[in-house]
Design a protein around this nucleic acid. Structure first.
Length: 112
RNA sequence: AGAGCAGGUCGGAUGAUCGCUGGUCCGGGUUUCCGGGCUGGAGGAAAGUCCGAGCUCCGCAGGGCAGGAUGGUCGCUAACGGCGACUGGGGGCGACCCUAAGGAAAGUGCCACAGAAAAUAUACCGCCCCGAGGAUAUGCAUUUUUGCUAUCUAUCGGAGUAAGGGUGAAAAGGUGAGGUAAGAGCUCACCAGUUUCCCGGGUGACCGGGAAAGCUUGGUAAACCCCAUCCGGAGCAAGACCAAAUAGGAGGACGUUUGAGAGUGGCCCGUUCGAGGUCCUCGGGUAGUGUCGCUUGAGGCAGCAGGCAACUGCUGUCCCAGAUGAAUGAUCAUCGCCCCUCUGGCCGGGUUACCGGACAAAGGGGGACAGAACUCGGCUUACAGACCUGCUCUGAUA
RNA sequence: UGGGAGGUCGUUCAAUGGCAGGACAACGGACUCUGACUCCGUGAAUCAAGGUUCGAAUCCUUGUCUCCCAG
């Protein structure tokens, strides 16, 4: 598998997992995002994204999720192993560029 | 040139790097999985879910009541509340646009306030006539009382009338003449309207012409309702399937009694199933990054033919998204479009200052509405802009 | 994604098609030394746009927002 790929086993795909991470994980936040960090036993760092309808219509929500996946795909080697990360989007970020999202998330994960 | 009307097309392009995903082929592996090659990967509205269908299931859907929908005519269509053409009405100088457009003489209801009255004119004011009472008298009879007659009436009773009446969204056909005690379609002429009949045109809605009647019947059916036509219900989270092993169970066949009870829509009838028994067959699941349904379809494109058109037929050609915590992206470069600023020369006007126009280069900014979720046909709503075709009006020139 | 229900002052409830009305809250005043209670008064709303009607909160159409159910 390529170093910058993003396969299905790197995504959180079960409702059980989401509920467990919400219950057990630690939360850090910035102005636009909340990150919830849990751990797993697989040795793989996985990503889950939650974007509610308050963020905007489906075009805005899809673009938000694509930006976050792109961030994870390019930075996942810097993140620790065996972690489950859920990023919750708080408000409309469709006007932000990819660089803005990266800056904010780098500061968020550098802090946590 | 300016203003405008109708219809249609498009909805940035190319490349590089890194990714996601369907199909197919190859290799490792032979269950899942991994790597590589080729190839496909959002829209005109994918949206809202407002209609109509396909498809699937529901103990096959028959009748009645209830309920819902539609509403000019003819056609198109698988069907429609859609579309086309035409008719009536309304708007615009015009191109053209809008139109829930059956029935109010089948019945019921409502019409606040104001007004006499909101619909059967049992009708208030007013107008007119008669009678009673009263007053006056210049009259006549009479000694007087009184009677007759005439006029008037802030009174009472009876009859006629629908001409007029500050209102109101809406007032009981309009104008003129005759007529009458006063009046009135009471009668007549013209006009408007209604109904019936006849003639001509049209498939039809309807249009044109003529005659008669009654004199005229307010509005509201997006109030109940009547008439005509149509509608079984639910929805892909429909529904079907999955190795081995058994219980609870499931299905089929036979069969007796009771017809208890049950079911897909609100009810009723009808119809169907149906406890306990015997035999035969099959064997649990919200399993699970499960499989199918899942994308070839009333399909797209081109040509020809029919039709005013919607649309249809024939021939050729193409395969054009199938995700499931949910793919179709991110970054960069170049080009193209629009706007702003500055610079340059050019053209036109002007004595100058300056103004206007197109062009070239540089810098900056903008690029909308919006994301498939079983699939189609429509409707509605949102939308930066760009382009094409036809037509109308005004002005100028010839 | 599919199926439903609804929207009235700041909040919660009314309103046969005919002037949108209470209660709580807010503000002002009276009472009190002050506050509470009580009394009086004031302001404030029909989700938006069209249509039917003489007249729409109500009827019809379209849009928008909120809530509920289905794995």
């Amino acid at each position: 598998m390529g170093k910058q790929s993003f396969g299905k086993n790197e995504r959180i795909r079960k409702r059980r997992d989401y509920l467990r991470i919400y219950r057990e994980g630690g939360r850090i936040g910035s102005s636009n995002f909340i990150a919830i960090l849990g751990s797993n036993k697989s040795g793989i760092t996985r990503l889950g994204i939650a974007v509610s309808k308050k963020v905007g219509n489906s075009v805005k929500r899809n673009r938000t999720k694509r930006l976050l996946r792109e961030f994870f795909r390019l930075r996942k080697d810097r993140l620790p192993d065996s972690k489950d990360i859920i990023i919750v989007v708080k408000k409309d970020v469709s006007l932000l560029k990819y660089q803005d999202v990266c800056t904010e998330l780098d500061r968020l994960f550098g802090k946590g």
